[in-house]
Structures are given as C-alpha cells and as structure tokens.
Design a protein around this nucleic acid. Structure first.
Lengths: 198, 198
DNA sequence: CCTAATCTACCGAACGGTCGGTAGATTAAG
DNA sequence: CTTAATCTACCGACCGTTCGGTAGATTAGG
C-alpha cells in the first residue's frame, strides 16, 4: 500500500461526501486497511486534503505554463488553454472537485497559503488575456472579470459533466472557446460599462 | 425566537463551514439558545438543510416565472432574467451558497426530490432560450449546453463576488448578458459543432 | 551461512472529545 | 391553569488520533 493509493482513494471519497463527511474509516475501507494503519503513511486528515490541493494546483500550473510558452497567436493560445484546462479537470474529476469545493475545509493557516497559490494560477489566465488585449486582438476592458467568467464556466462543468454524455471534453472546450471568443474578438462600437440600469 | 431566525442563522453557518462541519451547537450559539432548545422549532439538522434548499429554490422559481411572464423580446427577457438571478443570488448569499454547494449533504431520498425540482428550474431557462431560438433571434444549436454555461458563470460568481468590490450586481449582470448575447445573437457562417480537434 | 538488529507495514484497542438527538424539569405568557 | 418555550442533564455513536505490539522483510556483523 502506497501513500499515493491512499491519496487517490481519499480524493474520490472527499469528492463524493465532502471532506468533513468523509471519515478516516471510509478511506481505510477503500484501501482495505485499518484506519490506524493510515497514519503510517499520512500524518493527519488535514495533510491528505492539503496534499490533494497541492497536487491539483501543481498539475494545472504546470500545464498552463506549457501552453503559455507556445508560440501561437492569442486566439489560438486561448483555445488551447481552454482545451487543456477542461481536459485536465474532466480527466481528474476527483482531484478537480476537491480543488474547487473542499479548499474551504483547510484550516485558516494553510488556506491562506493555498488561496495565494491559486491566485497565482489565475494570474496566468489574466496574463494570457492581456497578451491578446495588448496585441489588439481582444476587446476587453475588464480582464479580471472576463477571467472569472471564463473560469466560472469551466469550473462549473465539473459539477455536471457526465462521461457518458453526448460531448467529449474536446467538444466542450470548442464550444466554450467559441462562446468567449465571440465576446472577446474585437469589433466596433461596443460600450462595456454596465452602469446604466439600476 | 422564531423558526425563521434559526434557519437564517443556519444558512450563514452552513455557508461558512459547510453542512457537516457546522454543528447544532454552532447554530444554537448564533441564536443564543441551548442546543436542545433548537429541537422545539426544528425536527433535525437535515430538516434545516432541506428547508433552506426549498426556500432558495422557491425564491428562484417564483422570480424566474415572473420574468418569463413579461412581454418582452427574447433578448431583453434574457437580460432581465440574468439580472434578477444575479441580484437574487448576491442579495441572499447565504441561501445561495447553501443551494449551490450543500445539496450534496441531503440524504439520498431528499436529494433526488431536490434535484428533480432543480432540473425543473433549469428547464425554465432552457425555455427562455428556446423562445429566442424559435423566433430566430438566437443562433444556438445546443440549448442545454448554453444554459449550463450561463448558469455556470452566474453560479460561480457566488464564490468570488465581494460586496465591497468594484461592481454592483447590476453591472455584473450587464457584463454577463453582453458576453452571452454576443455569442447568442444570430450572425452568419457559424459552425458550432466542435468535432474537429481530437 | 547464521543470527542479531533494524526497519516497514500493519493491526486491535482505546483515548478524549464532539456529534445529533432525547428526557424531563423549569420558566414565561395568555 | 395551560401550554409554549427554554432550560439542564444526559445518551450512544462516531470522530480523528495515539499507543503498544507483531509479522516479515532487510540489513549488518562475525
């Protein structure tokens, strides 16, 4: 029995039940150990959560930096980033769901560190968008907002996507990219400040 | 002390900690009662969660039906629906967060009922979109997908929106509507099946 | 080669603490 | 006096974690 196997099982159970509803007993059962034995490989339940969150962010950051390093026009780079993000999230559903939903269960000290790292990751997306804006390809005044919209769409797919559904992750990514690129690509006469109503 | 006050306090605590991490003791402290006294107003912790989820859905369904009943062109109706949804979610953050994140903690029997009702609500959005499609205003082949994208963007705002931030809910709604209407409004020569790459 | 020492992986039992929930006495309101 | 609301006191179950100990593989010394 390896530490990795325990983490993997924990991710699955955390995703199904949530961190607090999942017990060490559940995890032990999943890997066919006594729960005391888990503590030979792992120091605490919190440590498991922390390891999963780190692992998830590591994966996303690594792949995002690969995409950023590509020599592509902004539009294609954005398409690629969306594809890679969705593929990663949907192929690692357990890890993704923990990343998106369970970081709240970190105790405050670790949570702060984690949020900081997550913000660094989001900064990579903002960087990608501002590259496109600087080159005059994207017409977007509020990059942080568009960035949150985009990540919102993609993150939410984790909650509803079914592998046995009609769409592959690649098709999903294509649709998602279409939607945003239509809204992003420069066209004339857009006002994008919404301070008229209310 | 009223049942409503207990539910309200519970919503706040469920939002902060999540259902399982929140204890009846926490709720009792928040309303300055002994834990046992809660059970005079409420039968169980599960019942509190169920009541909150019902209340949230009731509110959303009611307001969405009001919007659907308006006599407006599809584009304006969609803008209105987005505005009302975001305002409701952001003005009832506690309730919204519980709706979006904690329904997983319902025991299976109630969860199934709840999901069914939530699907009915989503059907209202699909109806709004297909009205626009039938009238030839919206160019959208996969309505359920666009619907999930849209709800995804809006739902995710609940996780990051700050009242002390730069945007009012109305401005947020305007930006969101702009993004989707750019992608939705009919234009020529779009292929929207993404089965090319991978 | 033998054996003693060390290490890895695991176990059963138990700990202090908290959980959701209950019973029954006590108080407040009409 | 009645009844609704709140209290104190308690329950069994389960929580994450620790402890002492064991089987078996690995290493070290002669």
């Amino acid at each position: 029995m390896t530490r990795d196997a325990i983490l993997e099982a924990a991710a699955q159970i955390f995703r199904q039940k949530g961190y607090h509803a999942a017990s060490m007993q559940d995890i032990a059962d999943a890997v066919k150990l006594q729960k005391a034995s888990l503590y030979h490989h792992v120091n605490s339940k919190q440590e498991i959560l922390l390891a999963l969150l780190d692992r998830a962010l590591d994966l996303l950051i690594e792949r995002m930096e690969e995409v950023l390093a590509l020599d592509l026009p902004p539009e294609e780079k954005l398409r690629r980033a969306i594809l890679v993000y969705l593929q990663t999230m949907l192929e690692q559903r357990d890890l993704s769901a923990v990343l998106l939903l369970e970081y709240r269960s970190l105790d405050p000290k670790c949570r702060q560190q984690h949020i900081q790292r997550r913000d660094q990751y989001e900064a990579l997306w903002r960087k990608l968008l501002s590259e496109g804006a600087e080159q005059g390809i994207f017409a977007v005044s509020d990059i942080p907002l568009i960035c949150r919209f985009l990540l919102g769409v993609m993150n939410w797919t984790v909650t509803w996507y079914r592998e046995d559904g009609p769409l592959t992750p690649a098709q999903l990514a294509h649709q998602c990219a279409n939607l945003f690129l239509l809204g992003l690509k420069k066209r004339l006469g857009e006002d994008d400040r919404g301070d008229r109503d209310n």
